[in-house]
Amino acid sequence: MGAFAGIPALLDQAPALILRGRTLDCECLLGPIDHPFHASIRGGRIIDLTPAPVLMRYWRFSYRASAVAWAEYWKPVPRPGWHDLLALTKREEAVLEGDLHPFMAHLQYFKDVLALPRSHRPTVPS
């Protein structure tokens, strides 16, 4: 999914967001349910994003959602029930697994990082 691959570069352009994640070093699995990415986060930056599976790669937590869910989440004004990471888990369009401590301790950071494609999507003429 192209939008996901672009998140590290978008994050590099968001110093306030990096600052909020400055104490975060974490390996996690993020993205579409069937084709997630291994993300390596150091000091709030995503220094590596590699499509899974990677043989014996470790991750602490995983947040994966359906392709429909990501498309809805990244709409300029998402529809009710599709507008938040935990709204998506509640409606069973996303799954959150593993050791959730880094995710919960940096919850707003992850919500905002994973929303970055929302404000950077090209406007499609109607």
């Binding site: 009710p80 507008h83 938040d84 990471l85 709204a87 401590h101 301790a105 919850l107 707003q108 919500k111």
Partner: peptide, 20 residues
């Protein structure tokens, strides 16, 4: 004690606010 209460409470409920 290992998660900042103010930060996590606010982050949890932030999704309950309408995008508009």
């Amino acid at each position: 004690p290992d998660v900042h209460g103010g930060e996590v409470c606010a982050a949890l409920v932030s999704g309950l606010i309408a995008p508009q």
